[in-house]
Simulated scan of single mutants.
Amino acid sequence: MGYYVCVEPGVNLYVEDLNPKGSKTIVFLHGWPLSHDQFEYQFDVLPAMGYRCIGIDWRGFGKSDRPMEGYHYNRLADDIFAVVEKLQLNNFTLVGHSTGGAISIRYMSRYKGFGVSKLVLVDAAVPVGFTQETAHQLLDQALNDRPKMIRDVSDTFFFQYVTKPFSDWFFHLGLQAAGWSTAAIIMTLRDSKLYDDLPKILTPTLIVHGVHDKVIPYAQALELNEKISNSYLVPFQFSGHGPFWEERVKFNQLLKEFIG
């Protein structure tokens, strides 16, 4: 079922809550510029295994409200905390993909991992996001031809072949976001560094990263593995930036084994 949670006056986040009576809870944070729908191939399977799966659309993305401000990691982490408090979540696994991984890291450091028993970082945009050059190019496109920018990002996202209908579906996920939120996150990814957050992560952490990732280099996964003390890294040999789809059977099984 889907519903809205108010995270501050005038701002409501959309939450997809599947199998609310599940024995263990997984909270999913999507990547830029997508929505919780990117995890369709987890939501198809994991609730039937007994897990409660919660997908949250960040402000400005998916079905959530689209305010003009609040697109920095502190506020985005505050939004997640507000949802966790409202839903009274505890002992849950937090899964963050790409920029969602960065938001997860800030949540863990800012709120001392409140409620989180395990952390999963999937091709996380941590400790850095976009280079100045990449950000400049994306920002220029976002402000002048956002559909082309999203199409270009979609085309470099996956290592394995995707059909045109799948590519079109993925492309339309990106179009759901507001133009201003899409641009604001590019600047956040350009300007924010999360080095100081990493030593504060004490929760057991699974790092998943496609070795062919053209968006966030695999080298960053190695760095995360080195700097997050209680972590282990599983490389996905046949994936780019989207192992949750490209190797979805392996990904879902790994989640199940890690969560227990």
Rank of each mutant, 00 (worst) to 15 (best):
F81K: 14
K118G: 03
S104W: 07
V120E: 07
G113K: 08
A82T: 06
D123A: 14
N91Y: 10
D123P: 12
F81Q: 15
P127A: 05
E85Q: 13
N91H: 11
L87Y: 10
D79G: 00
R106D: 12
D79K: 01
D78F: 11
T131G: 15
P127R: 13
Q88E: 15
F130C: 03
T131I: 03
Y107D: 04
P127I: 10
S104I: 05
F114C: 14
K86P: 00
G101W: 01
N90G: 09
P127Q: 05
S117I: 04
A102R: 01
S109W: 11
L87R: 13
S109M: 08
S98C: 13
N90A: 12
R110W: 04
D123F: 11
A82H: 07
A102G: 02
V83H: 09
G96Q: 06
I80H: 09
V95P: 00
L94C: 02
P127Y: 07
T93K: 04
Y107V: 02
H97N: 14
V128R: 15
A82Y: 10
I80R: 13
A124G: 01
R110E: 06
V83R: 10
L87V: 09
A125M: 11
K86V: 04
S109V: 08
A124T: 02
L89N: 05
R106V: 13
R110N: 08
L121W: 06
S117D: 10
F81E: 14
K86G: 04
E85H: 15
N91L: 06
Q88C: 12
A102H: 01
Q88I: 06
T93A: 12
A82P: 08
H97S: 13
D123S: 15
E85K: 14
I105K: 05
L121E: 03
T131C: 03
Q88V: 12
V120P: 08
D79Q: 03
R106K: 15
T93L: 09
D79I: 03
V126H: 05
L94D: 00
S104Q: 03
Q88S: 12
S98R: 08
T99D: 07
Q132D: 04
V95H: 01
T99M: 13
F92W: 04
T131L: 04
F130L: 09
K118W: 05
R106H: 13
I103K: 00
Y107W: 05
Q132V: 04
T99R: 08
L121K: 06
A82L: 11
S98D: 15
K112F: 10
Y111V: 10
F114D: 12
K112G: 12
